[in-house]
Amino acid sequence: MSKVEPKVEKILEVEQVKKHFHVGRGQLVQAVDNVSFEVYKGETLGLVGESGCGKSTIGRTIIRLYDATDGDIRFKGKTTKDLKGKNLKQFNREMQMIFQDPYASLNPRMTVGDIIAEGLDIHELAKGKARQEKVVELLKTVGLNEEHADRFPHEFSGGQRQRIGIARALAVDPEFIIADEPISALDVSIQAQVVNLMKKLQREKGLTYLFIAHDLSMVKYISDRVGVMYLGNMVELADSQELYDNPLHPYTEALLSAVPIPDPDTEKRRERIILKGDVPSPIDPPSGCRFRTRCPKAMDICAKEVPTWQEVRPLHWVSCHLYQEESLKKEEGMK
């Protein structure tokens, strides 16, 4: 199939990244295994998957909260693996993170003003009056006001705290923000407020987002492209509308069909694919394709060979034997 070269600049390249954790007794959790993708400047890439699929681990590895076990991550063309000292500090400015739990991710003993200005202090970006002004400006950007600077996190609601978390991330003028489940802890009516704020900031500041979430409807709404993960592997990656209209991987299909749609008429007409069983343990993942134990379309080859990550349609990547001619031929041979 012909390759369409996107005319946009790659800001982040993740290549064959692995992250394994030792969990004692010589056991190894393969949290992320051979994941490759790219993020273009100014876009939102959504990462979805169920708990334990490795979506948060990949986010944390990218921002170097974890060191990758293997593989390479390049930010603006440069590998992030051996960043040290000044370069690492610069990298930390350019990439920021918004966390899931707005209750646990703000220091309860610091005022909101100090929380937001911590980045400014570390990077020595503003002092005295300029620092104060910057804090006020940030508070206003995220829809809070000046008086909030002297208060403590416990005085705020979940939605407001998440705004504080966003203001903190914005303080150092980052280019790339990793948002790890930024809205899952919030109520429905508040979720929309925060997502709209994130979209507005992206338009105004040209930010690039890696948006990690398990809520597929929200991910579709905010993302330009969406990657689907399962048990440490990326199984499919495509433009968000394309992915939702033409899911190729059987897991994506099942995942999309499992999301209930808030409309009783649609719900009644819909045929759903219900997956059997649970996600296997990442300590001892199934051989071949990791999804095969729950896959309604599994073939013999799926247990024997790991499917390759291929672009089967322009800009639509999938890792499944069903879409690989060679695999289908081998499958014929097995019968």
Partner: peptide
């Protein structure tokens, strides 16, 4: 406030 998966993503959310 709720995005719907079966609709296009151009529909604005009204929080």
């Amino acid at each position: 406030s709720m995005p719907r998966m079966d609709l296009s993503r151009d529909t604005e959310l009204t929080p």
